[in-house]
Amino acid sequence: MHAPSLARLVQVLRTDVEKGLLPGAVALVHHRGATVLHEAVGLQRPAASGQAGVPMAPDTIFRIYSMTKPIASLVAMMLMEEGRLLLGNPVAQYLPAFAGQRVYDEATGQTAPVAREATVHDLLRHTAGLSYAWEAGTIPDAYRTARVGSRRHTNAQLAANLGPLPLVHQPGSRWEYSRATDVLGAVLEVIEGEPLGAILQRRVFGPLGMRDSGFQVPADQLHRLAEPFAKDPLTGDAVALIDVSAPPAFESAGGGLVSTAADYARFLQLMLGRGTATGLPGTDGPVRLASRATIDFMTADHLGSIPTAGDILPTGYGFGLGVAVRTATGLTTRPGTAGHYSWSGMGGTYFFVDPAEDLFAMVLAQAPGQLRYLCELYPALVYAALQ
């Protein structure tokens, strides 16, 4: 890659730190089998209450929020390969609370039976009729009353509380970003008979050597945890991220993990290798977790002409099984090639994988108000470095 362009990438992030837009960040770029950039800028923990700030380090730990989703989705693919999970099966086959669901009609205020049951495939591609309930309204109010997403509830409790609530769309009729991957986590626990954290450790983190990834940061490693500004630099709003200092009851498949750039790069190396990672330090030979056909299936567009709700999924993108999938090289505002896939985390983290360029890259920060900016900025900086 073009070394001056990679240096410029780092300088742009450093300038954002100097402007007070970001507390700090870690950037990583992997191209043609080698990590060509892995640098930290700014502060891991901003100065506060008379205490000096802590410099960002390449091995800083971040809350990656929704970058958890592709990892949980990979485990679902592994169970599919074993014949233990069929994507066409109804969710209710694993979680009885999802039987007999009904759909809310906003115009009439009434509910009607679903035309068909939501399937595991719907969970993976966010077409199960669920929501995140961020806005106001009847269904969001019902989510809040049921405390859907409470970190005091287990995955089983989340499923039991969410299943009986009305859907916002008929299953399979519309893409809406939602609690679907959290429900998938409950499905995985039913099949495997153990907590999600143990499943991820056994199936993904252990084999790939992802030693700093999990649902909590051990007490002796908390000094490595990145923190945000106390207030958003643009809006002045208070910033609060999830507490990862103790084991949560809610091991969220949709957004609960912590990780480092080096750890997540191991996962992305597996994805770019179409199910097999080679040359991972500390591993004994290649690590194969899924077939190339399965990874190709996972990272293909599964929406087709299904319409999308909201603006989270940009124009020019479809959605696979846990990742956004670029359907055209053009149409959108950020560089990339057709077949590139990506996702982000609401705390300020973003990655993409471009198989055509033999490339993956990520930027990790704890700056939720700057997430959309980073999702636009970072691909432009990385693609500028291609020769």
Rank of each mutant, 00 (worst) to 15 (best):
H169V: 05
P314C: 13
T329M: 08
Q101G: 13
W134R: 07
G345M: 03
L87C: 12
V323K: 00
R202P: 09
R152Y: 11
T235V: 12
L257C: 06
G255K: 01
G273A: 09
V353P: 06
F267W: 07
T332W: 14
A385M: 10
E376R: 13
S5W: 00
D311A: 15
P228E: 04
S173Y: 05
L37T: 01
C375K: 12
G275K: 00
T294F: 13
A3T: 07
G320D: 09
G149I: 08
Q93I: 01
E106V: 14
M78Y: 05
T315M: 13
A97K: 04
D212F: 00
L303I: 06
G345V: 01
L162K: 05
A338C: 10
E189T: 05
I64P: 00
F297M: 13
Y177D: 14
K231P: 00
S131G: 04
G185L: 09
L158P: 02
G214C: 12
P281M: 10
V26Q: 03
R211K: 08
A385N: 05
E81G: 10
F229D: 02
G236N: 13
D16Y: 07
G336K: 04
R45Y: 00
R326N: 07
P307S: 12
G330M: 09
L371Y: 00
L130P: 01
G282M: 14
G149H: 07
V382N: 09
L257Y: 07
V363H: 02
L28R: 05
D237A: 15
S49Y: 14
L95Y: 05
E117Y: 05
C375G: 03
P70V: 06
S259D: 08
A246S: 13
R202W: 04
T154D: 06
G348R: 00
M78D: 10
A365K: 00
D220F: 03
Q101C: 08
A262D: 12
T181N: 08
A380R: 15
R288G: 07
V54Q: 15
A262E: 13
S305Q: 11
T235M: 08
Y177P: 10
P113E: 09
G214S: 07
L321E: 05
L222C: 06
S342Q: 13
S5N: 10
A277Y: 07
I64V: 15
G100F: 03
G330I: 03
T278H: 11
R151A: 11
G83H: 14
G83S: 10
D212E: 15
V17S: 07
F319Y: 15
A97M: 07
S73K: 02
R266P: 05
T278F: 04
G163W: 04
R203E: 11
V363Y: 01
G254F: 03
F360I: 02
A3M: 08
Q11P: 00
L289N: 03
G304V: 04
G254R: 01
H169C: 12
G256C: 11
S173F: 07
P379Q: 13
P233S: 09
R84F: 09
L22D: 02
T276A: 11
G83N: 12
A253Q: 04
I61K: 03
G282K: 12
Y378H: 11
G50L: 09
D296A: 15
V244H: 14
Q44I: 00
A92T: 03
T15W: 08
K69P: 04
Y143L: 07
